[in-house]
Design a binder for these strands. Structure first.
Lengths: 353, 353
DNA sequence: CTGTTAGCGCCTTCAC
DNA sequence: GTGAAGGCGCTAACAG
């Protein structure tokens, strides 16, 4: 693994010199197109060996400049601290790699200024496509991309400036609401008392989920109380505070809770940990998101899980037949968190002890 | 935000033509170095305006080729599915951005082949520095980097081929062990019964933690049972299975459990959820890792939290005075998970209701 | 003050 | 089969 004697990275010239062949021969061999040019196999092997020995690496900057293909695929997302975003990132990376692209994912902490500047940076890096995940208002970012001629896809939160793929929030919320109502009835409480907590009003995902929640009510011919829906953002602490208020004014816990995000749910768990376990016996809890720990809490939770794999698949499909004019909105169904993890798969095969 | 009429991305030539100036003038203005060259402010403004109007973006590929600086900072890590790795990624990104670098982080799912090829890809992309996180054997990757003249830092798992920064696993494990022993004594059980579960034998972090665990025993003048340490890898399911075995052979739960990773702990939680709550009353549990949900489980857990921010800081510091010959190993202390999150900070200020 | 020019490392025609 | 040459977009000398 000797390094180029010059001290800097080695180039095709170095290896051409070392093997006594021409740069074009080297280039062809390195690209695997040498057979087409009837280059002697022996020459090819000599070149390959020399490249390995010199620790040669293509300079994608130069190749990209020449070919106007960077080999980069970009994704921006809010953060990695929940399974939804983490799953999107990992699936994206895997898929990008399988296409011979180098995935480059950047988190923006939901800061519009950062979102903007990161997008510009990624465009500067000539990413060949860009996934914009969980951005409240993707429109300016879409504009940037389309100005640069870069295909981009909005994920999770849609926008009119580009094709979008999102979970079927409305359908999922309806299904979740219905499931929770059933449980409430089974527990002897009134399904109409189910509360919807968390998220941001006027944000697409939250609005859709509220719509789904209302759909379920309508289907039953009832309607939620005036204060049944409360959107306090994505912080765990504001969620906890909201719960505390409910608890105080009700004198007890609500009988049904649909938490709109994992952080809202986290706030609930924090609050729950302060109360005796008995206080939870008659409360039915659901969450529009999934987390492995949340499954095993002192109370039962019904979790709606988003299909990250399918979402990424659809997004790549949209990127493939990228049409600058048509901006479809693809919806991916959600499931009840019963999807099998690879990890769980091994359990079923192996015995427990 | 009109796009270059040609249909492709606009270049400095386009804007030179549009403004009737020269490419060098444009280049200087765009780089902010125009004052030095006494270019008329009016010209500069005209150029800037035109650039904005054309939706111009620098081509970092070309600039990088010229300057031999890519503006990229790379990180590879196993995955994003726990707070430790997610935190490392986010802190890395923030720090890289603050240095004017574009962070590019890629997950490898602990697959050595993927680690290798991703590293090669990142080198091809000419990253200016590379953080290698949680790689069992970073040596070949370090070799790749040093052959390419790219400074790299091993994080979490060290190696002789590059400077490394890791948590003080031994000290942390000792502190955790001691804390758990105290609790066991308070609960009326023998501290010597504390078990160490999870991780991979022969892996640096696990070995250090086992050493710390033994340190605490020695300090007490006792020693763990022959089968007190069990390393079954990083899967939640294998952890659960191991617990099941212990339970079966003991006829009850162990009185003290030190779980060596969050996934091992996850397995414990899975197993716990099958048992009545009472079964846990006399078990003391600790975990060398931190998760927000785990804090609020039906039983109390003592969590050792790694200081991701400090780790990244140290890693960048090492990258700064990069010395190809000297490869120090920096240790970052761990804490008892009592570190305040920004989110929690707001709680203390605001009232609960 | 502004325009011209020579590469950065690579790929691809096009002659030889 | 191989070598020479042009150019991708940009920057930094160097002339004007």
């Amino acid at each position: 693994m000797a390094r180029s004697s010059s001290g800097r990275k080695s180039t095709i010239y170095d290896i051409a010199k070392a093997t006594g062949s021409s740069t074009s021969a080297v280039s062809m061999v390195l690209n695997g197109t040498w057979a087409r040019y009837r280059i002697k196999e022996e020459t090819a092997n000599r070149i390959l060996a020399s490249a390995a020995q010199l620790g040669y690496n293509v300079n994608m900057k130069a190749r990209g400049l020449r070919l106007s293909r960077s080999g980069l695929a970009g994704m921006i997302l809010p953060h990695y601290r929940n399974r939804f975003f983490a799953g999107l990132a990992e699936n994206f990376e895997e898929h990008a790699r399988s296409r011979g692209l180098c995935p480059i994912v950047v988190s923006t902490q939901r800061d519009p200024a950062v979102e903007m500047s990161v997008t510009e940076t990624l465009i500067s890096q000539q990413v060949e496509l860009l996934f914009i995940v969980g951005v409240r208002n993707p429109t300016p970012l879409d504009a940037l991309c389309s100005a640069a001629g870069i295909p981009c896809i909005n994920v999770d939160l849609p926008g009119p400036g580009a094709p979008s793929v999102v979970s079927d929030n409305r359908g999922g919320a309806r299904a979740l609401t219905e499931a929770l109502m059933e449980k409430m009835i089974a527990a002897g409480s009134a399904p109409g008392e189910l509360l919807f907590l968390g998220g941001v009003m006027d944000e697409y995902a939250t609005e859709m989920r509220i719509a789904g929640y209302r759909d379920a009510f309508e289907a039953r011919g009832i309607s939620p109380a005036a204060d049944a829906v409360e959107c306090f953002g994505y912080g765990a602490s504001s969620s906890r505070r909201a719960l505390a208020c409910r608890y105080e004014s009700l004198g007890r816990l609500p009988t049904g809770l649909l938490m709109n995000s994992i952080t809202a749910f986290e706030g609930l768990v924090q609050f729950a940990s302060k109360l005796p376990r008995e206080a939870w016996q008659s409360t039915v809890v659901g969450c529009f998101d999934w987390d492995p720990f949340a499954v095993h809490l002192p109370f039962e939770v019904t979790m709606m899980r988003q299909d990250v794999q399918k979402i990424i698949l659809e997004a790549f499909a949209l990127a493939d037949n990228h049409d600058a004019t048509d901006h479809p909105l693809v919806m991916v169904p959600t499931g009840f968190g019963e999807m099998v993890e690879e990890d769980e798969l091994t359990i079923k095969i192996g015995r427990e002890c």
